[in-house]
């Protein structure tokens, strides 16, 4: 079995995960080649983390098979674990211990000798610029430093595949950008396959060679960021227009040759056209003729956000009012992270 997919780092075949009556992941099939930075993009509850948790052997699929580096995630858990590095959405460091001790603990659990550990820990801590902080307790680290330490730790046992679950969540924009550099650099210098989940469009755009857009447990689009954007086929003109005009305006605009697609979104109409600069005067002419009251017009090249809206009909926003969110706040308050 292991030989069949030597080219692929990850193979998901019809993977479904149910929690009672709720289907978190619905029949997902996906192959990720070695060396890629692959992004699973979607809102909270789309099934990204559940997919990752199955790949990391922390839960078993209800149906279907998942393979990592040719090993089955249900029957060959230890083999899979030796070949993956995992960075969880919530920090999984021991705050009381130092950066070095956290790394050392990890190396011991993965059966590395003292010599191997000593050498590689320093190497990796330097790679993420934490060499000088090695002997400080983790509770003195900033959020970005903790994340870097976790990434270094996940690389310690020389895994083939690195999983990053929402790696930059809760970090400020500057730190996020710096972290992207680290991730891209690690992908290049270590030749490691990286699978990350994110609900940040810019993150997926900046880092990933391919993106799978997930919604309600299914992968609804799969391609490179460039091709996904190209699929929208042109520029987007966003019209701020009174909702009472949405229906007639949509009907009238859809008849025009230069309009590819009209989609209402919030109080706006998003009009996809081949060339925005030429389309605006024509649209304004129509508006004047039909007496639609247009508050503002903007034209932009499509972003991944637009791609997401195109495929799901909704915007990507964070919602967090569940039990886990409450516990996360409680944990934060108690200063455990």
């Amino acid at each position: 079995m292991a030989r069949d997919h030597m080219q692929a780092a990850i193979v998901l075949a019809g993977v479904t995960k149910k929690f009672g009556a709720f289907t978190a992941v619905n029949h997902v099939s996906l192959t990720i080649p070695q060396g890629e930075i692959f992004g699973l993009l979607g809102p909270n509850g789309a099934g990204k983390s559940t997919t990752l948790s199955m790949l990391a052997t922390l839960s078993n699929p209800t149906h279907g098979n998942a393979e990592v580096w040719g090993f089955d995630t249900t029957t060959q858990k230890d083999e899979v674990r030796k070949n993956i590095g995992m960075v969880f959405q919530d920090y999984s460091l021991d705050d009381e211990l130092t950066g070095f001790e956290n790394m050392d603990f990890h190396g011991r659990l993965f059966g590395m000798t003292a010599e191997e550990r000593g050498k590689r820990i320093h190497e990796l801590l330097n790679l993420v610029d934490l060499g000088e902080k090695a002997n400080n307790q983790v509770k003195t680290y900033s959020g970005g430093m903790k994340r870097r330490l976790e990434i270094a730790r996940a690389l310690l046992h020389v895994p083939k595949v690195l999983f990053l679950d929402e790696p930059t969540i809760g970090l400020d924009p500057q730190t996020r950008r710096k972290l992207w550099d680290y991730i891209a650099q690690i992908n290049k210098s270590q030749g490691i396959t990286i699978i990350l989940t994110t609900h940040y469009m810019d993150e997926a755009d900046a880092l990933c060679s391919r993106i799978g857009i997930m919604d309600k447990g299914e992968i609804i689009a799969l391609d490179s960021p460039q091709k996904l954007k190209a699929k929208l086929g042109g520029d987007i003109i966003s019209l701020a227009i009174n909702p009472s005009f949405h229906a007639p305006a949509t009907a009238a605009l859809s008849e025009e040759k230069f309009v590819r697609e009209v989609k209402p979104f919030d109080h706006h109409l998003n009009v996809v056209v081949e060339n925005g600069a030429y389309a605006i005067p024509k649209i304004m002419e129509l508006a004047q003729k039909n007496k639609w009251h247009v508050d503002s017009v903007s034209v932009k090249e499509p972003t991944l956000e637009d791609v997401f809206i195109h495929f799901t009909g909704k915007s990507l926003r964070e919602e967090e009012g569940d039990e886990k969110g409450r516990m996360r706040n409680m944990a934060r308050m108690m200063g455990r992270r």
């Binding site: 083999e79 920090y91 999984s92 021991d94 659990l109 059966g111 516990m327 944990a331 455990r336 992270r337």
Partner: peptide, 17 residues
């Protein structure tokens, strides 16, 4: 319980032990 959701237990759970 805390370590399981937000902490160190997960680190142990993905180790080959």
């Amino acid at each position: 319980i805390f370590e399981r959701q937000f902490g160190f237990l997960k680190e142990m759970l993905v180790a080959p032990i």
